[in-house]
């Protein structure tokens, strides 16, 4: 699974980096910024899903990979 942030939609609520701090970090204005390449390790799957399910702007994107 891959996580990414739609920067057109992100408004800096910060739910993603609170719920999945290993995957997303805040930039200088509080918007979400993916750490590394966005690949979600197995032990971070739940956090990634939480980050997606709590974004008020629907700016957190999860994509299944083959």
């Amino acid at each position: 699974m891959r996580i990414s942030i739609d920067l057109e939609r992100c408004e800096g609520h910060g739910r993603c980096y609170s719920l999945a701090p290993a995957l997303v970090e805040p930039d200088d204005i509080g918007n979400g910024c993916v750490v590394g390449d966005g690949n979600v390790p197995p032990d971070q799957m739940d956090n990634a899903r939480q980050a997606e399910a709590n974004c008020p702007e629907r700016a957190v994107i999860l994509e299944e990979q083959d």
Binding site: G12, G14, A53, N54
Partner: peptide, 20 residues
Amino acid sequence: RQDNRHAAFGLGIHRCAGSH
């Protein structure tokens, strides 16, 4: 509650600047 896309701090460009 696990899924909580609440809008207490607003939505869109005027998201509460003091939310953090």
